[in-house]
Amino acid sequence: MTETATVLIVEDERELADLFADWLSATYDVRTAYTAAGALDELDDDVDVMLLDRRLPEQSGDEVLAAAREAGYDCKVAMVTAVDPDFDTLDLGFDAYVVKPVEREELESLVGRLLARSLYSEEVQAYFALASKRATIETTKTPEELAGDERYERLCRELETMREEIDELVAELDEDDFVAVFHDLREDEDENET
């Protein structure tokens, strides 16, 4: 039997945090923290996904994320916030970025996608995280603004390099490798359904 995934919701607006918890609690083990300190207290190796607000009263979500990464926690992190993304988001270690308001289906889909990514190799996970950052910033900046930012250009170069490396790995797989990968994924899905 497979363990239920654990989601940590970090949101200082209690009603919103409790609403998110209510939406997700039928499928996941849910923890809720209303402060940065509470988030770090609740965070441990059992947490699979953290939904993190960037604006917390005593410490920013960015600082919570940095502390979590520095402590060695490798859970998937989605910034779920009212803060529109800017170039500073390119330096953060998140896996997805969503601007509030968030609907129930969007939140459920977000958690599901992040959990699915954890099945991939570290290289593919890193690629998805970078691609998510690029997509996030591209929704708020003009092509002219993007072309002038060194961080964005560096991100694009890094994505291209990673894409080439992943393509090389895929090219090395033979038919038996593909069958084995899909068989393992099918078993994981079957176990999650029971």
Rank of each mutant, 00 (worst) to 15 (best):
D48G: 09
T139Q: 15
D53E: 11
E103A: 12
D91N: 06
T142P: 14
R186D: 14
L16V: 13
I166D: 09
T136E: 05
T35F: 06
L115N: 02
M79F: 15
H183W: 12
R117L: 13
A147R: 11
S132M: 08
L8S: 03
E165V: 13
G61T: 02
L16R: 02
D91L: 13
M50D: 06
E150Q: 09
D29A: 11
A37T: 13
L155T: 04
L24R: 02
G148I: 05
A78Y: 02
R151E: 10
A21H: 08
A116D: 05
Y73A: 04
S60W: 03
D86P: 10
E63P: 08
L107Q: 02
E144I: 00
E144T: 05
V179I: 14
E145P: 11
E165A: 15
L56M: 11
D174T: 00
T139K: 15
D45L: 12
A71S: 13
A17M: 00
E63Y: 01
D62T: 11
V170G: 00
D84I: 04
V98H: 04
V30H: 00
R69N: 04
R69H: 03
E3Y: 00
T35Y: 02
T140V: 15
Y120E: 15
V98N: 00
F128M: 13
T2K: 06
T136S: 15
E63W: 01
L159T: 01
K133Y: 02
V30A: 03
D190T: 09
M79R: 03
E168Y: 02
L130H: 11
L56C: 09
L51M: 03
V98Q: 08
K76Q: 15
D22L: 12
E150I: 10
E172H: 12
A17G: 12
R104A: 06
E42Q: 15
V49Y: 05
E58I: 01
A21K: 05
D86K: 06
R134A: 15
E193I: 09
L110E: 06
V10H: 04
M162N: 10
R134Y: 06
S25L: 04
V102K: 07
E58F: 01
E191C: 01
D29N: 13
V49C: 09
V124I: 11
V49Q: 06
R117C: 10
V77Y: 06
S118I: 03
I137P: 11
P143T: 01
V64I: 05
G112V: 01
D88F: 12
E3I: 06
T139A: 11
T35K: 07
E11D: 07
E3L: 10
L65V: 01
T89V: 14
L119I: 00
S60F: 04
E15R: 08
T89I: 14
L146F: 07
A67T: 00
R31I: 03
D86N: 14
E11T: 02
A126N: 09
T142C: 10
R154E: 15
D48E: 08
L119E: 14
D53G: 05
V124C: 00
T136D: 05
A131E: 12
L114F: 04
E158A: 14
R186F: 10
G148L: 05
E164G: 03
L185P: 02
A39H: 02
E138L: 10
A129M: 09
R69C: 03
E58R: 07
A17V: 04
R151V: 05
R117F: 04
L110I: 05
A82R: 07
